[in-house]
Design a protein around this nucleic acid. Structure first.
Lengths: 225, 225, 225, 225
DNA sequence: GATGAATGAGCCTTCATTCAT
DNA sequence: CATGAATGAAGGCTCATTCAT
């Protein structure tokens, strides 16, 4: 009756996970199905029991990666109250994507973008799904900004621009991350991002009313850099 | 040098130009040599008279593209004196890369990055060359910043950070451009970039005119924290 | 013999029946074992409990089909006494193989022939078994002819040729049936077959003894057409 | 300018010819492209310079075969005046299709029919083209019949039935040929066909002028059988 | 006994590269 | 020089068969 009770979803996730490591290393086109199978520790044919095509495997790997990203963001931000700190934490989560010892995630992001941008790309027809995920992160940033405003920490005048600011924030992070990957660590990613945040917070923040201007200022700057 | 050499180079450029249009449309892997030959209006075998491999053609196309980019920047900036205006002009040059009617250049940039980032990428072993070109643009930005400082328009305190600032500037532009390409114009690229520049200039600029320099400066510093 | 054996045979027949519908629709090569299993309402592995290979399943399906054919002939001929009528009835049984609404049987016959004729065919090594069955039908025709002669209806001179005549009869029916299938009903099968029988009976029949030659002859022709 | 002046059509014919021998031996599905290439004495990839798909190769092989058939018929019939002889010659051309030493053509006919009959068959969508060719042969037979009638050799009463008769004639030949192939020569093909022609001519022919009708008729039968 | 998950041989097809002309 | 005909390695995918459950 029940020969092998295999958890289909678990199997698919295992494959997607294995595929992720290979795709991120060599890209979609240069990765052969055989390699994926080997990485997943199973036969070539088995992959096709769980996915229709190589492209589907790539999509699954992509989704897995995006989910991992999301949860990483959640972990970083968890427990932080101060909007400035939360913004910084988000950026740092991005920074950590570029592990010099395992730059997988960063490379994967390049490949994903490519597959979504190029007409012949595997994700081209599903790029709206990607956009959804990215919008999720963007919304997260917007919320932080709005909280900052409502808490009186950020200037209320920017309320109408939170959308643009969030998009720019994410855009910047993606861009600088790419550059970092491309230079393989020559670029001091964290320093750059911290500096960027300084810029942004400088733009956002109200003069922190108080008797002494210098003290807090220094403290803040130290923390940001 | 000799006429033949000139002829040879002209041929190579013609091929590179043709290849660029195809590569930017379909990406490296999905582009066949036959297509390039057809686009260049010559036989497949002839390509191999001027290039050793398909990868070499891609490198040539890449260089051509980067040069075109450089000259585009030069044109935009030419004649502008005010550092703020020059910064803005540079950014606008980037924005115009994403022609909604011909997103070729933007897509090409994705492909180039990918080929430079992925281990199996055609440009992987030459990514330092890419880095060179990007550093060129970065230097250009740095120079504008330094000029602004020397002209007393930008705060002198940032002099030590021009490197970071320029890298961030370029990084942001690349990132937001990618997002724009990926969303196929849903994102209002120009508005976002202009807003970003506002942020940057706000951070950079001295309080424009005023009786006391210190006061405003302090205010600025406050704002940054 | 023992209950299990009976059960076993029933299972095999069920599988063969299911396989027949699929094989006749798509041919041997294009039919996958999975499809057969689904059509039989059981698991793929189960099939291999009852058959060694896919080829064996095809052989079983073939035999089932041939048996069905035989019984169809029996039914048609049952109760008819007149040899001419019996011959006609046999031919009509063939004609009905090509049901425009369900051309399964006709298509199956093509596939069977193919598998028996081609070196790599599944039935190639067993084509003698097929020949047996076909000889069965041929013998049936021969017998009708001999009865007609012994009844004085057909010319006695043909007694020595009944073998050839029967073979030709069956051969013609197979051939015209194939053509009909290939033209998907554009060919008026029944009309052609009836005309053929006219020819044959004209050749076979004695001038039906009596004062007038024309009358009876006409009668025969009418009856045949 | 002109690296290799290759005669495309000659090349295609060479491939088709080679493919014919393999297809006729093993059938479409069981024949691999590699085998065709080897038989044609060229690389696998070369085939795809001249044909889009394996199916296209099969179609080309089919057409070649049909053309060969046509010319064979022409040769056999050439120079014959007497309609009866021409009919016989046509039938004999068919008979010779089954060369016991090289039964290729006969097997090919089975495969062609199959591919045209089965829904998944390669020729299924082009079965009308096949029908055209077959109609060509049929027309040829019809013409012979009509000539016989106009020459006063065949009964004028059959003029309205020449269509049916020709279709039956071809149908019979195809059918008996298949049986012959399936039995690998156990069936004496020529004898059977000759006997069949006797039947047909008996049906067709006018009593060959003479005082008595019975006499000549008997004579004919003797001679024919 | 019944099942379907797993497998890998083998299929058709593409394409960068070579080379005779 | 210019060409495109020729090639075979390699790719994605299918599927008959096995076997653990």
């Amino acid at each position: 009756m029940c020969p092998q009770a295999v958890n289909r979803q678990a199997r698919q996730e295992k494959i997607a996970r294995a595929a992720l490591t290979v795709f991120s290393k060599k890209g979609y086109a240069a990765t052969s199905v055989r390699e994926i199978a080997k990485a997943a520790g199973m036969g070539k044919g088995t992959l096709y029991e769980y996915f229709q095509t190589k492209a589907d495997i790539f999509v699954a790997a992509t989704k897995q990666w995006l989910n991992a990203l999301e949860s990483r963001f959640s972990i970083h931000v968890a427990g932080l109250e101060d909007p400035a700190e939360r913004l910084t934490a988000l950026a740092h989560a991005f920074v950590e994507l570029v592990d010099p010892l395992d730059p997988m995630t960063a490379r994967m992001s390049v490949e994903i973008i490519r597959q979504g941008v190029l007409q012949e790309g595997v994700l081209y027809d599903r790029r709206h799904e990607l956009r959804e995920v990215m919008l999720g992160t963007q919304k997260r940033v917007e919320q932080v900004l709005l909280e900052g405003i409502s808490q009186g920490i950020f200037k209320a005048a920017h309320a109408k621009d939170v959308g643009k600011m969030a998009a720019n924030f994410i855009g910047y992070l993606d861009g600088i991350l790419l550059h970092s990957v491309m230079t393989k660590g020559e670029l001091e990613l964290k320093e750059h991002v911290d500096f960027f945040i300084t810029t942004v917070l400088h733009f956002l923040s109200k003069p922190s009313g108080g008797p002494s201007r210098r003290g807090p200022q220094n403290a803040d700057l130290k923390g940001a850099s």
